Measured scan of single mutants.
Amino acid sequence: MSIQHFRVALIPFFAAFCLPVFAHPETLVKVKDAEDQLGARVGYIELDLNSGKILESFRPEERFPMMSTFKVLLCGAVLSRVDAGQEQLGRRIHYSQNDLVEYSPVTEKHLTDGMTVRELCSAAITMSDNTAANLLLTTIGGPKELTAFLHNMGDHVTRLDRWEPELNEAIPNDERDTTMPAAMATTLRKLLTGELLTLASRQQLIDWMEADKVAGPLLRSALPAGWFIADKSGAGERGSRGIIAALGPDGKPSRIVVIYTTGSQATMDERNRQIAEIGASLIKHW
């Protein structure tokens, strides 16, 4: 067993022997301040990774656009098919120029040779490549099948209805392509620590998230040296922004954090800054 596999296998073990965790309302004060600064709703939840206990939450059962955070769930569904012998990570998928959609920095470079399922998941999570996500959605049967996968996990809230990039439209009061912070946090925890996926697939999923290259201005910008984070960000229309993450000190994750916002007129930089400040408060009061 590799060191990384050992780390993920012992996530519940280490967490069980940690000192009790206590909620700190100071972080919620910052979440509410972010709402004021952005002029928009902000949803927040913080779960203990081992027990699933909610440590703090704000608007945990209000719907927010998922945006690209759905790509972690998508690759979880792909990995479940791999575990069941219905898919192979090494299978190569070929596609054409007509398949390319807006923001496809990886797939646009491989029109000639195609990409493997493993490479597509890596591109979808680490670079948020939209064509990679659409190609992977095709392998599982489309958005409705991802929703069905989530329902089978016990998540009857999260739903995907459309493809990239239309799913980022974020129309107010439109339930399409949305989740709730509580539902997303619980589902992410199941994917990373539950028995739904094999140990190898859980490790692969967290490795992809740990290698995320496009979430630097968010929670990662607030992390002290030595902290662990595996995350996936999302951005959408109407001032929408979000991030889902597993993080913790001492090089291992111990909490799940989900943050979503929508309806702001603020710039992307300002949305990023507010999420980073929430992260800084979380870490300060850990």
Rank of each mutant, 00 (worst) to 15 (best):
F70W: 06
G226T: 08
L135N: 11
L223Q: 08
D33F: 05
S233R: 00
Y260T: 04
K144Q: 10
D161H: 05
P25Q: 12
V29F: 13
T262G: 06
R202Q: 14
V157S: 08
S240I: 01
L218F: 09
V42K: 00
P172H: 07
M67I: 09
Q86H: 13
Y260N: 02
T186N: 15
W208G: 02
W163P: 06
D83F: 03
L219E: 10
A276D: 05
T139G: 09
P143V: 07
N134M: 04
T187A: 11
R118A: 14
I140S: 05
T187M: 13
L135S: 10
V78C: 11
G251K: 13
I140C: 10
A222P: 12
S80M: 13
W208I: 04
K53L: 12
R241H: 11
N168R: 07
V257R: 01
R255L: 09
K284S: 12
D174H: 07
G114T: 11
I54M: 15
D212V: 05
S221N: 06
T186F: 12
T147L: 06
P253V: 05
T112K: 14
T179A: 03
W208C: 07
A235R: 03
S68H: 00
K32W: 15
S128K: 01
M184L: 06
Y44C: 02
S281G: 11
L223P: 03
V72I: 04
C75K: 01
G76L: 05
V82A: 12
E102V: 07
G234Y: 01
I259H: 00
F149R: 15
T193F: 06
T193Y: 11
R202T: 13
S128V: 01
V214F: 15
Y103N: 07
P105K: 09
G43Q: 01
F64A: 01
A183F: 14
A280K: 15
P165A: 06
I206L: 07
L167A: 06
S96Q: 10
L205F: 04
L192W: 07
P253N: 04
P25G: 11
G154W: 05
M127Q: 07
R59L: 03
P65R: 02
Y44V: 06
A132M: 00
A266T: 07
L282H: 03
Q274K: 09
P249L: 11
N50S: 13
L188K: 00
K32I: 08
K284Y: 13
L38M: 06
A225Y: 15
V42H: 03
L137D: 02
R92C: 15
S57P: 02
G154Y: 04
I45F: 15
E108S: 14
R189Q: 15
G52F: 10
I93W: 12
L282A: 12
G248F: 02
T267L: 08
L49E: 04
F58Y: 11
V42Y: 03
M66T: 10
K109T: 13
L111D: 13
D177E: 02
H285Y: 04
I243Q: 09
F149E: 13
V31T: 08
W227E: 00
A182S: 11
T261V: 15
L150Q: 07
G236A: 10
R241A: 14
E175D: 10
V42I: 04
V42G: 02
R255Y: 02
K71R: 00
G239F: 02
G90C: 05
P172I: 04
L167F: 07
L160S: 08
Q37F: 05
E119P: 01
I283F: 15
R41P: 13
A132Q: 02
L196V: 10
K190I: 10
I54C: 07
E61P: 01
A230L: 10
V157I: 13
F149N: 14
L196P: 10
L55V: 15
K30P: 03
K30E: 04
R220L: 04
L100F: 03
T112W: 15
L79W: 01
D177T: 00
G43L: 00
E26R: 12
V82F: 09
I140V: 12
S264L: 08
N168A: 04
A77F: 05
L160K: 00
A280P: 02
D174M: 06
R202A: 10
K109G: 13
V29L: 14
E166S: 13
Q88E: 14
A246S: 10
L218C: 05
H156Y: 13
Q203E: 04
L218M: 12
G216R: 08
G234D: 01
Q204Y: 04
T198V: 06
A200M: 08
L150F: 13
W286P: 03
L100C: 07
Q97V: 11
P249W: 07
Q203P: 02
I206F: 03
I125H: 03
L205Q: 02
S264H: 04
R118V: 14
T69L: 03
A200I: 08
V117K: 02
R273C: 08
D177S: 02
Y260S: 04
L199I: 11
G234Q: 00
E237S: 09
G251E: 13
L49N: 04
I45L: 13
N98W: 11
A235I: 09
R41Y: 13
T198E: 11
Q97A: 10
P172F: 10
M180R: 11
A222C: 10
M66G: 13
Y103V: 06
R238I: 14
T107P: 01
L120R: 01
L197F: 14
L196Q: 07
R189S: 07
L197Y: 04
I229L: 14
K190L: 13
G43N: 00
T131S: 13
P143R: 04
F58M: 11
G90H: 10
I45C: 14
D48S: 05
P65L: 03
K30A: 05
K109S: 13
V157K: 06
G236Q: 03
E108L: 14
D33M: 07
E169L: 07
A200N: 15
I283G: 13
S96C: 05
H24V: 09
G216A: 12
R63P: 09
T27N: 15
T187H: 11
V257A: 10
L199N: 04
L191E: 03
N98A: 07
A77W: 05
V214K: 15
M268C: 13
L223S: 09
F58G: 11
D129W: 00
M184K: 01
D48T: 03
T139H: 08
M180W: 13
R202N: 06
I243W: 09
E164V: 00
M180I: 15
G194F: 11
I206R: 05
A230Y: 03
R59A: 10
H24I: 07
V214M: 14
A124Y: 01
Y44M: 07
L137P: 01
T158Q: 01
Q204D: 09
T158W: 01
P181H: 01
T178Q: 04
E145Q: 10
T27I: 13
V258F: 02
G154R: 07
A200W: 10
N152C: 13
L100E: 14
T158L: 02
R91D: 12
K32E: 14
T116E: 13
G154F: 09
A280M: 11
T262M: 07
R81D: 08
D177M: 01
F70G: 14
S240P: 02
C75G: 06
L137W: 11
G242E: 00
M268I: 15
E119C: 15
H151Y: 05
D161Y: 05
L89G: 06
K32A: 10
W227Y: 11
W227S: 02
G154N: 12
A280N: 09
L160R: 01
N152P: 09
A40W: 04
D231M: 10
E108G: 13
L219F: 12
K252F: 14
G242M: 02
D207L: 09
I54G: 08
S57F: 14
